[in-house]
């Protein structure tokens, strides 16, 4: 298969999953999807994606970040680039309460953070850039 890369999309919003899949597949990527962090972990035993697109708030408010931290601690997935997606990325969150605070911390376990609705052009450009960087590295 002449795919440009294998992408795993993890999000509990079926509309986001469906539209992201359409955009990515039309642009030559192979796409797998998972509706939760646990499902994603199960899937990761069988497939080796080139990039992970990961929603922040799923069943719990920090499920996406929890998974991201877990993967970064696992030697098998340490180098797997992660792009986080969130329905709510605003300046407000940085001063706020709860789990939003740590998003601004220095130690992001992720390559990038996009706000939903996703800008298809920017997302595709970022994915291409990350993959290119990976190949040269």
């Amino acid at each position: 298969m002449d795919s440009k890369g294998l992408i795993l999309v993890v999000d509990d919003d079926p509309d986001i999953v469906a539209t992201t899949r359409i955009i990515l597949e039309k642009n030559g990527y192979e796409v797998h999807t998972a509706p939760s962090g646990a499902a994603a972990l199960g899937l990761l035993d069988r497939i080796t994606p080139d990039i992970l697109l990961l929603d922040v708030m799923m069943t719990t408010d920090t499920e996406g970040f929890d998974l991201a931290f877990k993967l970064k601690e696992d030697p098998r997935f340490r180098d797997l680039p992660i792009i986080m997606l969130t329905a709510f990325l605003d300046k407000v969150r940085t001063e706020g309460a709860g789990p939003f605070e740590f998003i601004l911390g220095e130690q992001w376990p992720v390559e990038w953070l996009f706000e939903k609705p996703l800008d298809a052009k920017k997302l595709l450009a970022k994915i291409a850039a990350v993959l290119k960087e990976r190949k040269t590295a």
Binding site: I16, T19, P117
Partner: peptide
Amino acid sequence: AGMVSILD
């Protein structure tokens, strides 16, 4: 966000 993604 889901709505806008579909529109996109």
